[in-house]
Design a protein around this nucleic acid. Sequence first.
DNA 1: CGTATTGCTACGATAAATGTAGCACAGGAA
DNA 2: TTCCTGTGCTACATTTATCGTAGCAATACG
Lengths: 129, 129
Amino acid sequence: MAKQAGSKTRSVRGSRTGRPIMALLDLLGRRWTLRILWELREQPLSSRALRSACDEASPTVLQARLTELREAGFVELGDGGGYGLTPLGRDLCETFMPLHRFAERWKNSSPSPRLRGEGRGEGEPPRRR
Amino acid sequence: MAKQAGSKTRSVRGSRTGRPIMALLDLLGRRWTLRILWELREQPLSSRALRSACDEASPTVLQARLTELREAGFVELGDGGGYGLTPLGRDLCETFMPLHRFAERWKNSSPSPRLRGEGRGEGEPPRRR
DNA sequence: CGTATTGCTACGATAAATGTAGCACAGGAA
DNA sequence: TTCCTGTGCTACATTTATCGTAGCAATACG
């Protein structure tokens, strides 16, 4: 992948700049990461329950993300089984909780019938050039 | 991929539940998406400048993300060239701007030297089971 | 004309995700 | 004990996504 894996600090993708925001953006920008945090936002879930909540995502990735999130200190296993957010994780979750409200607003705004429908039909003439 | 691409609304991965938050989490959970929004947060950038800012990510993905973000209404091309956030995109960016502060806090907390260092060396005995 | 920028694309190589199957372990009946 | 069920977790072959390099057409300036 060229990025990351340089030597130590496999840490997170295009980060390496030292700025923690980059590491965080990278970690959260992996498949299912945001979703996992979202699904755990209210109560802990068993690995299987989490899988169900995540649209039956393959256990391989889920396990990988769970490990990353645990290493990051956002998620923990809970001695009785079941994954839950750590205090830090709960904190993070609340940080992007406003996204929920934004998402609702987004759906309604939708400046044009975008995001759904064929991959850019015609509709608008080529922009420039 | 099984997920998405069903028929219409190729929209976003494990979404389909109708809940816009899922679509949003999915869109943002793609590689470089968060990073792109972050890099555009202050001023518009040309495609090449954006590429530089994004650690020389390959133009293939960048272009793909840019297209998705434009379809979502978060980014626009700007008639003079250069990508910039739409009002909606600026709104979204501010929504997860607190992440910046959180990231700083995260770096300092770091309940153990996690996230960096070999992929889980030994360190701690197997957890359970 | 040449040169340099722009946004954007092709395409082979590589890394990551998917889907299915299954493991070892822990409890609770029977 | 044995059987059943649920847990966290892994193997592995297939499919997708991303990478990295190269290059295109269009625009602008000299």
